[in-house]
Nucleic acid binder design. Structure first.
Lengths: 212, 212
DNA sequence: CCAAGAATCAAATGACTGTTCGATTATAGG
DNA sequence: CCTATAATCGAACAGTCATTTGATTCTTGG
């Protein structure tokens, strides 16, 4: 190997977080490779040493963000808490994740469509790039469904256990995730409420909505 | 005046709806003037006869969408219903609006950031264009806050009237709107539930969340 | 200290896009 | 039937951006 100095060199992760921030500010299409590079004191060309291209870079940001969130949720899911307690913990975890890294949280909301609009179209030469991208993108969406399923399953289990009232679990879950995602849009560090406090309100709200 | 034939000629409104659809599919930055024009069988150049430029076109789409929604909400707000009844009607109205025109509904979520990223920057020649745009954009955001206030005020009023339990009205309102906005992201015509049915679930959910 | 590869950059490329301009066509009112 | 003007288009412009290429500069294992 070679070159991994103190200040100039940055690794994949650094670029990923930088990209998330710029993406949060500008949106995918309005974000240039130059913008991202500038955020880590590189030139656009250098980014191609770390990522195949802009699309893969975006996909990577989303993958990392989703993985972090899912990881915490799975730990809660595996615990021996009641459904209501599990749901509370999951809501808190999700909301705190979003408020703790608004850049990634917002990316999960806003940039997903950009993912769909990628040149599956036509002319682009490299067939192999496209194939790999489509495969990973599908995998991402599957993982996103899995993420939603984690919440939906708890809601269903709670209903069956008699802890929650009988609701349309699928719709209520989507409503819940919509509310959480939206937090990434309006939350500002240093506002009236901390991320934890917002999470508390959300927990209270959804337990009331599901309460018997 | 002149030329307003049967098939070839389209008016501002036609372009507005077409733009909303393309915007919904692609997002602002990824949407080209050519795309929008194609949707109404025009060339990109022709669009400039109806709109000053791309930014004003986007702004127009959002303005129309917001006005339509606010109009219905104000009528409900002016009625003599109880707070719970008003809130139910407003939720139903909002959700039905979103499901009834997903294109506009999604634009209200996704394209707003594009509005913020408009070249208030520098070089652009026409000072007057920029000034007018900034003014109208600020007005739009003010109107959007007003829209949120309509919901928030009912929640507050309901709490004071003892119809709702005591919650953080600001946060709960944002949660509510987040849930509704998200509907525009996942709702598909012809799915398991109609727009009305989804609206019913939302009403039920939020009344439960606020119920004493 | 050397050699191999990692990390970086400057410059060039090719494609696409918003926008303008001048010309053309169609329409409604006189 | 004219004519002013609304609506449209083709072509060209200027700018931006993702990406490639080839060279250059570190860094480290041997």
């Amino acid at each position: 190997m070679a070159r991994k100095p103190a200040d100039q060199s940055v690794d994949r992760e650094d670029i990923l977080w930088a990209a998330a921030e710029v993406l949060h500010r500008n949106g995918y299409e309005a974000t240039t490779m130059k913008d991202i590079a500038a955020q880590v004191n590189l030139t656009a060309a250098s980014l191609y040493h770390h990522f195949k291209n802009k699309d893969f870079l975006l996909l990577n940001v989303l993958e990392v963000g989703l993985d972090l969130t899912i990881d915490k949720l799975e730990r809660i899911d595996a615990s021996k808490l009641s459904c209501a307690e599990k749901l509370s913990a999951m809501i808190r975890s999700h909301v705190v994740s979003v408020t703790g890294n608004v850049a990634v949280g917002a990316a999960m909301v806003f940039e997903i469509r950009a993912l769909l609009n990628v040149s599956v179209g036509a002319k682009n030469s490299d067939e192999s790039f496209t194939r790999e991208f489509v495969a990973r993108r599908n995998q991402f969406f599957a993982r996103r469904d899995y993420f939603e399923g984690l919440f939906r399953n708890i809601v269903r289990a709670g209903i069956e256990a008699g802890e929650f009232r009988e609701v349309d679990a699928a719709i209520v879950t989507k409503a819940m995730l919509g509310a959480h995602n939206w937090v990434g849009v309006w939350f500002k560090e240093g506002g009236r409420l901390s991320g934890e406090a917002v999470a508390d309100v959300m927990v209270d709200t959804w337990l009331a909505a599901l309460g018997r």
